[in-house]
């Protein structure tokens, strides 16, 4: 059973492209996510082990930046280490990507039910205190950035066609972050393996989501890569 993405207010940045490719959508957190494509889920999961891309843009994410942002998130129970350009895994599976000493990009777990972003966005306020205790400022990351997941053993080879940073698994460890240029776009690449399968989150300008998606699909072709749904990623197993 697929739902119509336009029946919801919040819409993915390329739902038309995914629908044309045969995506079946399901609602998570008020938006339609491509859960699977035509064909068997086993086959899709097999693809995800080899090389695949999934659009996770409709899933929740958020960000905080500025003086006090990290301390405030820690006070909210997040586990964030000292190094920049490193992602810190949270108990519920979410990732807190430390982009800079005072900047965190948070992506929720693939279940989409962790609701960490929703909780944090609701918890933050300007407050009444004077002077105000620094607690950073929220960033509209669910809207500024499209969120793609790359999975499979051939992902590094695919990336080497669109990105100048060495993302091979023995050079770019799990939870490492590269803020760089991908297909001539500013992008954030976060390594996160699932069930032993190499995986990368690719976060970039939401307005160019269709362009970037097409670039990745093109770069995947020589390896036989394909678009998969969220379910195939979930089936790979946990981080």
């Amino acid at each position: 059973m697929s739902i119509d993405p336009t029946s919801l207010k919040r819409r993915g940045f390329l739902y038309r492209v995914l629908a044309e490719a045969g995506a079946e959508f399901g609602e998570i957190g008020g938006a339609a996510v491509a859960l699977r494509y035509r064909g068997s889920i086993e086959e899709e999961t097999h693809k995800a082990r080899h090389l695949a891309i999934a659009d996770l843009s409709p899933l929740p994410r958020c960000g905080f930046k500025g003086n006090g942002a990290v301390e405030w998130l820690q006070s909210q129970g997040l586990d964030i280490g000292p190094d920049s350009n490193k992602a810190y895994r949270q108990p519920n599976g979410a990732l807190a990507a430390r982009l800079a000493p005072t900047e965190i990009f948070l992506i929720d777990d693939l279940g989409g039910e962790g609701r960490l972003s929703a909780r944090l966005d609701a918890a933050w306020s300007w407050g009444k205190e004077k002077p105000r205790k620094p607690c950073g400022y929220p960033m509209p990351r669910a809207d500024s950035h499209a969120w793609f997941a790359l999975a499979g053993a051939e992902s590094p080879a695919m990336f080497s066609k669109i990105c100048g940073v060495d993302l091979r698994t023995h050079r770019f460890p799990d939870l490492a972050i590269a803020q760089t240029s991908v297909a001539k776009m500013n992008a954030i690449v976060i390594r996160e393996d699932r069930g032993g399968v190499p995986g990368y989150h690719l976060l970039a300008d939401s307005a160019s989501a269709e362009y970037l998606w097409a670039c990745v699909i093109d770069a995947m072709e020589e390896f036989g890569g394909a678009a998969v749904g969220l379910e195939a990623l979930r089936r790979l197993g946990g981080p």
């Binding site: 819409r11 940045f13 669109i162 297909a183 776009m185 300008d205 307005a207 160019s208 362009y211």
Partner: peptide
């Protein structure tokens, strides 16, 4: 090469 030329669509593009 592949001529990477990013293009930006607004939410109402289509």
């Amino acid at each position: 090469g592949r001529g990477f030329e990013p293009v930006r669509y607004t939410a109402m593009h289509h």
